[in-house]
Design a protein around this nucleic acid. Structure first.
Lengths: 94, 94
DNA sequence: GAAAAACATCGACGGTTGTCAATGTCAGTG
DNA sequence: CACTGACATTGACAACCGTCGATGTTTTTC
């Protein structure tokens, strides 16, 4: 694996290598319509709203979550295939 | 996903969420006999021996690599199924 | 337009991480 | 037993990370 490819992949793995972000992804994927707004996510995680927004931004920047603003709410959903690509890296060739 | 389970998984993801450790895993899995010693790994990564040993220890502590001392050399290999378990987490239920 | 609600951003703080130089440990060699 | 080579451990340092309180922005409501 090239250094450049490793750096690229590490950015995505870093994004999910946090307990609260793993729970965010899990909560969103199991939500109604596979999407959730920030106000639905703060209480089950026990974190403040700014902290949850911060984590969500990291996941969006890594290409794992998608953000859609509808009215006053921001709805977050999984980017199709993003996690599967990472899963493929971990299971290939061994 | 429970907070405890998320914490447990995040420790393993943190272990591979580093470009040099991703390359270590890749180098080892593609090595002859699927194992390698430290002296084989320092040069392709361009890192010092203590740094490589440090990264390898993190991967061993996370249950991703196995360490076997034979004479003066320490041989590192993949723990069977460890990466596949992580891959399963990323591809289940969505 | 004022007020409220949802969310983002900023600044700051302790804790963690990746790297290196120096040193320690242990097995093999002569 | 002294020496060498492979590796682990320690200590130190800058950089980064997760969290929070405070504040800014935007949309809806009255």
């Amino acid at each position: 694996m090239s250094a450049a490819r490793a750096l690229e992949l590490s950015k995505q793995f870093k994004a999910i290598a946090d307990p609260n972000r793993l729970r965010l992804v899990s909560l969103i994927s199991s939500s109604d319509g596979s999407e959730a707004c920030v106000c639905d996510l703060t209480e089950p995680l026990g974190l403040g709203q700014p902290t949850v927004s911060h984590h969500l931004k990291i996941l969006v920047d890594a290409g794992i979550l998608h953000r859609e603003k509808r009215g006053v709410w921001a709805y977050y959903s999984l980017v199709p295939g993003a996690l599967n690509t990472l899963a493929g890296v971990l299971s290939e060739s061994h």
